[in-house]
Design a protein around this nucleic acid. Structure first.
Length: 492
RNA sequence: CGGGAUGUAGCGCAGUUGGUAGAGUGCCGCGUUCGGGACGCGGAGGUCGGGUGUUCGAGUCACCUCAUCCCGACCA
């Protein structure tokens, strides 16, 4: 009873917050706008990290680490970039505390004021490009393909667990290239890495596209993103990859000697995904019973709950479960035996459902006699009696079945909530229903801004893989000519 | 930074015209239970966000202040 969560249909936001806390993923911290990621939530993040890190290495990248603090002057160098982040920076002004002369704890020592303020990184382009300047002399030094796993701070006015917190964990890739083509190819490659990860691991379909100029990253020439649809019909930007042109190279004076003996500015990209993916994962699949985790990211793939009346039965069941656990380990399926004696069976069932464990196996005296187990699937909420014999192999196969089913369900939902809209009247009605609207847009920031003001809908992306509709048409708002449909939606 | 609300037990909350600080849940102990969130009995747990004022007396009224949340604004 205590762990019951509110209905998704009643209040989606409340359901989400409730779920994050009750499923033991994270909680608000005492620090404004920050969150504590709890062990269970963090273990999911670690699984994401491990897979993404593997992909980065496979595509030729290396990990590195750059400072948390960025001198204020670095920020002044790229005008567009600073404008994009100036309003949400945490600034370090002093380096020492002292006892309060009035005896009230400690105060900031006014004599310890820093010569130059330090900014807690909201992103690392500036500090990294300041460093790359020293690394790059010749075309032989290129490309530089670095990734950093780090935390960043953005002083957001309003925060939500995982989706927008003042401090968050992420990875940021920063690459330097000799040519424009190479940099563009890198930015495209990485957005596809993200899309594949979302599809194959998070079981979350995403649309790959480019951002409209207004939605572009501060300082980028092109921003590629993956956009996912949450179950309330709102869009969530789940990852971005930017072609930065020569903007940062020029700002930090990073030139290389070409093979021909010339001197050129290098071309740059940056790309990142954050703990926001956790929010995406939760909102893409979960239901009123709690979290639904795709097997590939579930910290525990199979949970085993023993049912018994006496110590003799208990010992026999646990022994069998230990055996099954070993069999599962041998085929690469993670499992846990819930042998807690202070909770009843029903409580455990509810709790593991809340935590999103893909499969639950219950074994009781009846099952032991019949050579069966009770198998419950989290994704379908169905139960069936299956043979104990060959169970490990069956579960291994079932993991793929569940992974696919969760993806298919999300894909079906997205397609069902993606509509083609041609008139402004229709647009205003349809946007209220949520989902993606495929519309013609005249390509001007003015129209985009007006639509945003009137409906709160923004251009999520100009699709480049799915939902690509290249055709002549008229802008849904202005009626001016357009060559391709874009995706409008309300977003997180 | 504008508009609105809320601060009371670990948590989510109730607290009447100002009069001894409350139930639920969770936690600890004992017992009965145990195939879908059990129940009984006992127990621990509070400077009522902070300050000032009014009053014989303030969780309650007034003022100030701090914090949090919601709606805007802001936001790869």
């Amino acid at each position: 009873m205590a762990k019951e969560i509110v209905n998704r249909e009643d209040n989606y936001s409340q359901w989400y917050n409730n779920l994050v806390v009750k499923a033991d993923l994270a909680e608000s911290s005492a620090v404004r706008g920050c969150m504590v990621i709890k062990p269970y939530g963090y273990s999911i993040w670690e699984k994401m990290q491990a897979r993404l890190d593997h992909e980065f290495k496979e595509t030729g990248h290396q990990n590195a680490y750059f400072p948390l603090f960025i001198p204020k002057s670095f920020f002044s160098k790229e005008a567009e970039h600073v404008a994009g982040f100036a309003k949400e920076c945490a600034v370090v002004t002093h380096h020492r505390l002292m006892n309060d002369p009035d005896g009230n704890g400690v105060v900031v020592d006014p004599s310890a004021k820093l010569e130059e303020e330090l900014i807690v990184r909201p992103t690392s382009e500036t500090i990294i490009w300041n460093t790359y300047k020293n690394w790059i002399k010749s075309y032989r030094d290129l490309p530089i393909l670095c990734n950093q796993w780090a935390n960043v701070v953005r002083w957001e006015m309003r925060t939500r667990l995982f989706l927008r917190t003042a401090e968050f964990l992420w990875q940021e890739g920063h690459t330097a290239h000799a040519t424009r083509q190479e940099a563009v190819a890198e930015a495209k490659k990485m957005v596809h890495v993200y899309a594949d990860f979302a599809r194959d691991y998070m079981a979350m379909p995403v649309v790959i596209g480019t951002k409209s100029p207004a939605e572009r990253f501060a300082g980028a020439l092109e921003t590629y993103s993956i956009e996912a649809m949450m179950q309330d019909g709102k869009a969530l930007q789940a990852g971005t990859s930017h072609f930065l042109g020569q903007n940062f190279a020029k700002a930090f004076d990073v030139k290389y000697a070409t093979k021909e003996g010339g001197l050129e500015y290098v071309w740059a990209t940056s790309w990142g995904v954050s703990t926001r993916l956790m929010g995406a994962l939760i909102m893409a699949h979960s239901d009123n019973n709690g979290l639904v985790l795709p097997p590939k990211l579930a910290p525990i793939q199979v949970v085993m709950v023993p049912i018994f009346k006496n110590e003799e039965q208990h010992a026999a069941i646990i022994a069998d479960m230990e055996k099954l656990k070993a069999e599962l380990k041998a085929v690469g399926v993670s499992s846990k035996i819930d042998d807690r004696d202070n909770y009843r069976t029903g409580y455990k069932f509810a709790e593991w459902e809340l935590k999103g464990v893909p499969v639950r196996i219950a074994i009781g005296p009846r099952d032991m006699e019949n050579g069966n187990v009770e198998l419950a699937r989290r994704d379908t909420l169905t139960k069936e009696s299956v043979k104990r014999e060959g169970l490990a192999d069956h579960l291994l196969e079932l993991m793929d079945v569940i992974q696919k089913n969760i993806y298919d369900k999300a894909l079906k939902f997205r397609d069902a909530n993606t509509r083609t809209v041609d008139t402004w009247d229709e647009f205003k009605v349809e946007i209220e229903k949520g989902g993606f609207l495929l519309c013609h847009w005249d390509g001007t920031p003015e129209t985009e801004e007006k639509i945003k003001q009137e409906t709160k809908a923004t251009i999520r992306c100009i699709p480049i893989d799915s939902y690509v509709v290249k055709e002549e048409g008229k802008c849904v708002y202005s009626g001016k000519p357009s060559h391709q449909r874009v995706i409008f939606a309300r977003a997180y």
